[in-house]
């Protein structure tokens, strides 16, 4: 089991003839993802690594029935690619492109929702469900099938955390990079709810960073709604206020969005926060042990009551 993508995922690559698009189309195909088509206006009729290329999403969807698209087009065209995918009937759009204007995102994000679709990103590494499907740019070599869900606002920091889990024998159900921008299609809470509903997922690793209040809101949500254990890491404790740390969304402004405040909120909701990503596996193991003991206690209580 997994969230958002699985064996049934059929992908169209938007921007498949570009440098990144063609490279990652091949990588996804090699991993075992069912990549059914690519789209680049003006390149219809050609092929990339045996994948047929169409001029428009409409043409592609008429030939292949896909449910997912992944976007590698440059920033000025990325928002149009999202509208095009959703209008063609795609239900999951993953936008890898970095540098999309926030004002455009504010308009397209509600459009995606109103059409019953889901957007992941922009400015994200995408997602991977080990041994089933990968959509985006996450390296397939660092993951391992298992029962941990991973959610993160970052790219390479996510790889670091996944790799640490894999080395310690903690495999994953799905790893999702939700993106480092201010306006994104899918947030922590959306992913937490999906992992809670996924039977195979036993524990969740949530990796946040400075800026905004998503982690604080997620902490409140976890406390109220989640039965599965969550452990966390927050990047940017050493970041000075008022300076954007690479990601458009990673900025401490007016005393809000600090790592300190986020860690405090997470701890208050009973979520352990690691001092380094390499400490996440140990925290996860401990949290799983506790959850198991709690479940056993509950079961024993129910049993004695039944007697």
């Amino acid at each position: 089991m997994s969230i958002f993508i699985d064996k049934k995922t059929k992908v169209i690559v938007q921007g498949i003839t570009g440098r990144d698009g063609s490279f990652h189309a091949k990588q996804m195909k090699n991993y075992g993802t069912n990549v059914v088509a690519g789209v680049t206006p003006g390149k219809g009729g050609s092929k990339v690594a045996g994948i047929p290329v169409f001029n428009t999403m409409q043409d592609a969807m008429a030939k292949v029935k896909a449910n997912t698209s992944v976007i590698y087009v440059p920033p000025p065209f990325a928002v149009d690619a999202i509208y095009e995918a959703v209008s063609a009937g795609i239900k999951l759009v993953v936008c890898v492109t970095e540098g999309v204007p926030a004002n455009d995102m504010m308009k397209v994000a509600p459009f995606v929702k109103a059409n019953g679709a889901r957007l992941i990103g922009p400015n994200c590494p995408g997602l991977i469900s080990p041994d089933q499907s990968k959509v985006g740019i996450l390296p397939g070599t660092i993951v391992k099938k298992g029962n941990i869900g991973v959610i993160s606002r970052s790219g390479t920091l996510t790889y670091e955390a996944i790799w640490a889990l894999t080395l310690e024998g903690l495999g994953q159900t799905t790893c999702v990079g939700i993106g480092g921008d201010q306006v994104i299609g899918t947030n922590f809470i959306d992913c937490l709810a999906a992992f809670e509903a996924d039977k195979a997922t036993k524990g969740i690793v949530m990796i946040g960073e400075i800026g905004g209040s998503d982690e604080e809101e997620a902490a409140a949500y976890i406390k109220k709604n989640l039965t599965k254990p969550v452990v966390s890491f927050i990047a940017g404790q050493a970041a000075p206020p008022g300076k954007r740390m690479g990601h458009a969304g990673a900025i401490v402004s007016g005393g809000s969005g600090t790592a300190e405040g986020k860690i405090k909120a997470l701890n208050a909701a009973g979520i352990p926060v690691a001092g380094s990503p390499t400490e996440l596996p140990a925290l996860m193991k401990e949290a799983l042990k506790k959850a198991k003991a709690k479940a056993a206690k509950k079961a024993a209580k129910a049993k004695s009551k039944a007697k």
Binding site: S152, S154, T156, A235, Q237, A238, K243, G246, A250, P277
Partner: peptide, 26 residues
């Protein structure tokens, strides 16, 4: 972003670059 310390950092990815800074401090 320039800071005042003595350990220069070259990293790929914003999240990992922030984490590397955090660990230098830690």
């Amino acid at each position: 972003v320039k800071l005042d310390g003595s350990i220069g950092c070259i990293v790929n990815g914003a999240g990992l670059a922030m984490t590397t800074m955090d660990l230098v401090k830690r």
